[in-house]
């Protein structure tokens, strides 16, 4: 089974929140210097799910990412885990893309890669938590989609996808090729092996530019953005403690209710 996994580079989510700064003007979050970005953990789980399928059914795993600095680090991480090929999509024209333009770029790249049975994406990226890209890729490519996948199997030539629900799961039978977004119920991704890290570090990663992709110029980059972020700020959180007293419990309760109403809580 040939699988394409789309991965995104994000600021390390383990960075203590207080270390992030905001640029209100450009509405950008500025991660602290010195801690390298990482592969989105949900995408890492998508790589893990792909590897489990490869372990069972064989095939080839190709990893795609968009990175305008042509940074290959997260693709190499996926290769070190056991993926076969990685491609970085890098072009100035991609800058400022939103989920729609990102999905357009990825869809074009997926088509260029060609043969595939399954496209996997993380359920969402841990930086903005939108969770749109997988769904839009499915729409762009007119493919069936299952979100929140926990496990995938092959039964009678069809994909059997286990989808996580709030209090259980659903099983879908899906024809190939298909798209699935992967949930964290997959569990801890494997650690890269020794030879995996060594061979990934030596591998030349192809860089594809906008021109390589047959992408629609009106669909990519900042000019294609369909939404505008109005304001970005860190909310001020205040903690206050007030002790409400009363002669009797009933009196104190009434006072408490009045106070809460005054504060607009109830």
């Amino acid at each position: 089974m040939d699988i394409i996994v789309c991965v995104k580079k994000i600021p390390d989510p383990e960075i203590p929140p207080a270390k992030f700064k905001l640029d209100m003007e450009s509405k950008r979050v500025i991660p602290p210097e010195g801690i390298p970005p990482v592969i989105n953990p949900y995408d890492e789980q998508a790589v893990e799910l792909a590897l489990r399928l490869k372990d069972k059914y064989g095939g080839k795993i190709t990893v795609l990412t968009i990175d305008n600095d042509a940074d290959t680090s997260i693709v190499k991480h996926a290769l070190a885990m056991g993926a076969d090929e990685g491609i970085v999509l890098a072009d100035k024209a991609f800058e400022g893309s939103d989920s729609f333009s990102t999905s357009h770029i990825l869809s074009q790249a997926i088509q260029k890669v060609g043969n595939f049975d399954l496209v996997l994406c993380g359920r969402q990226a841990a930086d903005w938590d939108e969770g749109l890209v997988g769904a839009i890729i499915a729409e762009n490519l007119s493919l069936p989609l299952v979100t929140l996948a926990e496990a995938v199997d092959v039964v009678d030539g069809k994909l059997k996808v286990k989808r996580v629900t709030l209090d259980g799961y659903q099983i879908f039978a899906v024809p190939t090729p298909a798209v699935a977004t992967v949930s964290n119920e997959v569990g801890q991704p494997r650690l890269p092996s020794g030879w995996g890290i060594i061979s990934a570090s030596r591998k030349q990663i192809p860089i594809w530019k906008a021109g390589d992709l047959d992408a629609d110029p009106s669909q990519i980059g900042a000019k294609a953005v369909r939404r505008r972020l109005v304001k970005l700020f860190i909310p001020v959180r205040e903690k206050k403690c007030e002790i409400i007293e009363g002669e009797t419990t009933a009196e104190a309760s009434v006072k408490l209710a009045e106070r809460l109403r005054k504060a607009g809580v109830i």
């Binding site: 383990e14 960075i15 203590p16 207080a18 801890q188």
Partner: peptide
């Protein structure tokens, strides 16, 4: 320690 960055393992 709350200022430090950790990747806490389950193991």
């Amino acid at each position: 320690l709350a200022n430090n960055k950790y990747d806490i393992d389950k193991e």
